[in-house]
Design a protein around this nucleic acid. Sequence first.
DNA 1: GTAATGTGCAACCTGTTGGTTGCGCCTAGT
DNA 2: ACTAGGCGCAACCAACAGGTTGCACATTAC
Lengths: 107, 107
Amino acid sequence: MSDPTGRVFDALADPNRRYVLEALAARETATATELAAELPVTRQAVAKHLAALNHAGLVESRREGRETLYQLTPAPLGAAMDWMASVGADWDARLAALRKHLRSRRP
Amino acid sequence: MSDPTGRVFDALADPNRRYVLEALAARETATATELAAELPVTRQAVAKHLAALNHAGLVESRREGRETLYQLTPAPLGAAMDWMASVGADWDARLAALRKHLRSRRP
DNA sequence: GTAATGTGCAACCTGTTGGTTGCGCCTAGT
DNA sequence: ACTAGGCGCAACCAACAGGTTGCACATTAC
């Protein structure tokens, strides 16, 4: 899955990862241990999810003393939304053409 | 994964499924065998992907004689885009507040 | 210095997933 | 009537993903 948009969708496919994103959107930053406290999984599981999100470019991490802070980086969401909009637009154009065609055949 | 948005992201996470969506956006309709001809997998694999897309509400199927035609139904993409926009907007609002805060402390 | 807190890494387990093959059932041509 | 094309279902397989436990390393607090 080297394609960037694919990585984003793959990251968004897991409910726990989506929750992490929501939590990060609400706070400024958070640590893996904080996030694990609000989820029914261990800290290591959350760390794995954060790594996946980082791999998709949705999250940045910086070390601050003995804790590592994670922060949202929502830019790649734009590319994913573009892909969806493009698919939807193509379909819509096709639908419009079909409607026009039908109208011309049955005025 | 009962949440509708989750189903959409899950469906979009696979590159072959995304290709199927692109192909369906370009044509009016297509059969599983047609789509399998443009992909390096068997017809049954494509049929499974189409079932997943149907489960996510992204595709409709209708039987026409001895072949079943699949057609795009991009409506659920809207909900998924809304989710992404909301996360991005929350983050953006947080960022704007932070900028304002910093400016007020260092005029 | 030592205890506590927080992290990262590695091994391991288990369920799911993408894929295949094989078969049986319709439908459409001839 | 019979043959060929197209689908669906079930079994099976290898690989991966989400999760856990255990441990070693770094950093703060006392």
